[in-house]
Amino acid sequence: MTRRRVAILISGRGSNMVSLIEAASQPDFPAEIALVLSNRPDAAGLERAEAAGIATAIVDHKAHPTREDFERAMDAELASHDIAFICLAGFMRVLTDGFVERWAGRMVNIHPSLLPLYRGTRTHRRALEDGVLVHGCTVHFVVPELDAGPIIAQAVVPVVPDDTEESLAARVIVQEHKLYPHALRMICDGTAWLENGRVVFSKGWNASGSLHSPTSA
Score class of each variant (00 low, 15 high):
Ala170Gln: 12
Met186Ala: 14
Lys62Pro: 00
Asp130Gly: 03
Leu146Gln: 09
Asp69His: 09
Ser15His: 06
Asp75Leu: 14
Val200Tyr: 06
Lys203Phe: 11
Glu32Gly: 07
Ser80Phe: 08
Glu129Cys: 05
Ile33Thr: 08
Ser113Thr: 11
Gln26Ser: 15
Glu101Cys: 01
Thr66Val: 02
Ile8Ala: 03
Val134Ile: 10
Ser15Tyr: 08
Tyr180Cys: 03
Arg48Ala: 07
Ala170Trp: 06
Ile110Phe: 08
Ala104Ser: 11
Arg93Ala: 00
Arg102Thr: 03
Ala23Val: 03
Val156Cys: 01
Ile21Tyr: 13
Ile21Asn: 12
Phe85Ala: 07
Glu165Ile: 03
His81Glu: 14
Ser11Arg: 09
His61Val: 00
Asp42His: 15
Arg72Cys: 11
Ile83Asp: 10
Ala57Pro: 03
His177Gln: 11
Leu88Ser: 04
Arg122Thr: 12
Ser167Gly: 07
Ile187Met: 14
Leu133Met: 11
Ala207His: 05
Ala7Ser: 13
Gly12Arg: 09
Leu184Lys: 11
His182Asp: 09
Ser80Leu: 13
Ile8Ser: 02
Ala153Asp: 11
Glu47Arg: 03
Leu114Thr: 07
Pro27Ile: 15
Gly12His: 08
Asp97Gly: 15
Asp162His: 10
His177Ile: 06
Leu9Arg: 01
Ile21Val: 15
Gln154Met: 14
Glu68Pro: 00
Val36Tyr: 01
Ala104Cys: 08
His64Arg: 11
Ala23Arg: 05
Asn16Ser: 06
Asn16Glu: 04
Glu166Gln: 05
Ser167His: 06
Gly53Arg: 08
Ile33Lys: 04
Gly12Ile: 05
Thr215Gln: 13
Ser113Glu: 13
Ala127Gln: 07
Pro158Asp: 15
Ser213Glu: 08
Met17Asp: 04
Tyr180Ser: 02
Ala192Glu: 00
Glu71Ala: 02
Gln154Val: 15
Val200Lys: 10
Arg3Gln: 14
Asp60Cys: 00
Ser208Tyr: 08
Pro181Arg: 02
Val156Arg: 00
Ala57Met: 08
Thr123Gly: 06
Met17Ile: 12
Glu145Asp: 07
Val143Pro: 02
Glu195Arg: 03
Asn206Phe: 05
Val199Met: 14
Phe70Met: 01
His182Lys: 14
Asp60Phe: 00
Gln154His: 13
Ser80Arg: 15
Ala44Thr: 09
Leu20Trp: 05
Leu88Ile: 07
Leu133Asp: 11
Pro41Gly: 06
Arg126Met: 08
Leu95Lys: 01
Met107Ile: 10
Leu35Ser: 08
Asn206Cys: 04
Ser11Cys: 08
Ala76Asn: 11
Pro214Asn: 03
Glu50Met: 05
Gly12Gln: 09
Pro116Trp: 07
Val132Gln: 01
Arg5Lys: 12
Glu101Ile: 02
Glu129Arg: 06
Arg40Asp: 09
Pro144Trp: 07
Leu184Thr: 09
Trp103Met: 10
Gly45Glu: 05
Leu211Arg: 08
Asp147Tyr: 08
Ala183Met: 07
Asp147Ala: 13
His140Ala: 03
Leu37His: 06
Gly209Asn: 12
Leu20Lys: 05
Gln26Tyr: 15
Val172Ala: 07
Ala170Met: 07
Val108Ile: 15
Phe141Asp: 05
Arg106Gly: 11
Ile33Ser: 04
Cys137Arg: 04
Ala57Gly: 09
Asn39Glu: 01
Leu20Gln: 10
